[in-house]
């Protein structure tokens, strides 16, 4: 080891120490930026454990008696659990429905491609580019006339349609990676296509399907255009619940922070877990 180092030219060793210093600078900078980006969230979580008086103390308190008052009040004043339940139902419902439609579609395009497959994929993608605000009025009126305003079913349908293109795309790219031979071997053994999907494709592509579902869950959970415009109370998810704090209610910092922390915590954990696969879904495979 020592002899190897003494054999290296002086110039390289010098650049090594410069590299060392740059390495440290990069580390410090990297951490500073990370902490700055995360700071508002951290501060909010901290505030959620303060009493209302501590929350607005100036200068702000770093040391305080932690309390769960904020959390308790959120639940007692507004029915937090109902909103949370709505969020879970519409996110899981929309995602499950999208997967139900998308798995067969992606299977068909990945394993039985035709001349039109490429065009179909791109067309599906283009439906995603229709700005929601452009079709707000017809959807709102349709919902009103069909009695779907402020219903979970209505929101589930919207979320399913909203995410279907992304889900099909992501599944398509994952299915493409499944070796065709395995499915063909199954076919030789007399499996029909439904068996093929259920017993061969699903188990093989499960990790891909899981991360696709995860992305869809995140997008549904945080969706705040349709939920704000199409729900008011009965089917209102957490995005709408938090929006109710935009009135002077918001000045109850501890309560606002507690409600917000509860609203974002579960999905942030899911997001962190699936961050590597997110890119594929978010860019439609345009960045590899």
């Amino acid at each position: 080891m020592a002899t190897v180092i003494s054999d290296t030219p002086v110039k390289l060793r010098a650049s090594g120490t410069v590299g060392e210093r740059a390495h440290w600078a990069v580390g410090v900078l990297g951490w500073l930026v990370a902490l700055a980006m995360f700071f508002p969230i951290a501060w909010m979580v901290l505030t959620s454990f303060k009493s209302e008086t501590d929350a607005i103390a100036t200068p702000p308190l770093l040391l305080f008696h932690p309390t769960l008052e904020g959390y308790a009040e959120v639940q007692s004043r507004a029915n937090y659990l109902l909103f949370a339940l709505n969020s879970v139902i519409v996110s899981v419902g929309g995602t499950a429905l999208a997967l139900l439609f998308a798995v067969p579609a992606a299977y068909s395009m990945a394993f039985h491609p035709t001349r039109r497959t490429r065009g179909t994929l791109l067309w599906m993608l283009s439906t995603k580019m229709l700005p929601p605000v452009g079709v707000l009025i017809p959807i709102y009126l349709l919902f009103r006339n069909l009695g779907l305003l402020d219903t979970r079913i209505g929101l589930i349908a919207i979320y399913m349609l909203m995410n279907l293109p992304i889900v099909v795309w992501m599944l398509y790219t994952f299915f493409k990676e499944v070796p065709k031979d395995i499915l063909e071997a199954g076919r030789m053994d007399g499996a029909n296509q439904r068996d093929e999907i259920r017993h061969l494709l699903l188990p093989l592509a499960m990790p891909g399907i899981a991360s696709t579902g995860l992305l869809s869950l995140i997008l549904c959970w945080n969706e705040a255009f349709w939920s704000l415009n199409l729900t008011s109370h009965a089917a209102a998810p957490l995005t709408q619940f938090i929006a109710s704090f935009s009135s002077p209610e918001g000045l109850f910092f501890s309560k606002l922070s507690a409600a917000s922390t509860m609203a974002i915590a579960p999905i942030m954990v899911l997001g962190w877990i699936s961050q590597k696969q997110l890119v594929r879904g978010l860019t439609f495979g345009a960045v590899k």
Binding site: V33, A34, L35, M37, F38, P40, I41, I218, W221, N222, A224, L228, L238, T239, Q240, I242, A243, S246, S260, A263, I264, I267, M268, L270, G271, W272, Q275
Partner: peptide, 12 residues
Amino acid sequence: LVIAPFFVMPTV
């Protein structure tokens, strides 16, 4: 920590 804000819902 850097990508965390992406998972925060817009109203929050």
